[in-house]
């Protein structure tokens, strides 16, 4: 297109609006390798020892590797549950004859639009009654379940886009519906599975409220909890440089995944209705 406008005013406005983000994130990055005296704007000296929490378990961050492993297990479990249940459920919703199919589908759509955070009190009670309160399994199941309407909906969309003829050809070729799903249809929705899996993993990786509230005393500490402990300025021994460093450590996997899978994730971010 022709450039019939001057871009500099626009860039200037954009820079101004983006300033808080740019400042926050650059200081976040800067804080990991420098120290800043309280009350100063600019860092005073280079300091790599902010990273000492990686091998020193006596910092406020505790043993970071255990927390990292916990977070990975947490996020991966959520991903696996969301993927398997959405992959099967979405297929059934998209392609198979079920009683009350319309009703169930609109139910799932309502749940998809419905803000699940409002359910946390009810979820708390359910966990109390089932004895899953203060267990990581409980939190994982809750987090995965709250993501399910979204997952099923997204997967149903991907299944809907697979031509019916592939499915028809499969049954003509003598394959059972299960074989058709497993060997012919699943490979066609791989893009959807990858995107949903990444999304679920990132969502699990960043989760804070559910483990904090539903498993408050559990030993299975995830990074978000650790980070909140380190970063709470109301605490006596708080250290913002340590917080920034742990924060960067915590966010790096997210950024890496995002850089590599940006396009796949954008589809699903756009398709998701929740911000």
């Amino acid at each position: 297109m022709t450039r019939n406008f001057s871009i500099w005013p626009v860039v200037l406005i954009l820079l101004l609006i983006s300033a808080p983000i740019v400042i926050m994130y650059s200081y976040l990055a800067l804080g990991t390798v420098t120290t800043t005296e309280p009350g100063d704007l600019l860092p005073s000296k280079l300091a790599l020892d902010n990273w000492r929490f990686l091998f020193d378990t006596s910092t406020a961050a505790g043993n970071i590797w255990i927390a990292t492993l916990n977070t990975f297990v947490f996020a991966a479990s959520i991903m696996v549950i969301v993927l398997t249940v959405s992959a099967t459920g979405g297929y059934a919703m998209s392609r198979l004859n079920l009683p009350f199919r319309r009703f169930v589908l609109s139910g799932i759509m309502v749940m998809h639009a419905f803000p699940s955070v409002t359910l946390i009190i009810g979820v708390f009670l359910v966990l109390q009654f089932t004895g899953l309160y203060d267990t990581m399994i409980g939190v994982i199941l809750v987090k995965a379940s709250l993501m399910l309407p979204f997952g099923i909906w997204i997967m149903k969309g991907f299944y809907d886009a697979v031509p019916w003829e592939i499915e028809m050809a499969g049954v003509q070729d003598g394959a059972s519906r299960f074989t058709v799903w497993r060997r012919l249809i699943l490979p066609q929705v791989r893009a959807g599975l990858v995107a949903l899996g990444l999304f679920a993993f990132l969502d699990g990786w960043g989760e804070y409220v559910l483990p904090r509230i539903l498993a408050p005393t559990n030993d299975f500490r995830v990074l978000s909890i650790v980070l909140e402990l380190v970063g709470n300025p109301d605490r006596t021994n708080y250290d913002f440089d340590l917080f920034k460093t742990v924060g960067v450590f915590y966010t790096l996997p997210v950024l890496v995944i995002f850089v590599f899978f940006q396009h796949r994730l954008m589809d699903i971010f756009g398709g998701g209705t929740k911000g």
């Binding site: 249940v85 198979l96 079920l98 169930v104 709250l146």
Partner: peptide, 23 residues
């Protein structure tokens, strides 16, 4: 009704019933 369909949808229904509907 597809038996396979019921089988495939049941985990979703179970989890949604416990952690969505019941709450």
């Amino acid at each position: 009704t597809s038996g396979l369909g019921l089988l495939l949808i049941s985990p979703a229904m179970l989890l949604l019933a416990i952690f969505f509907f019941t709450p």
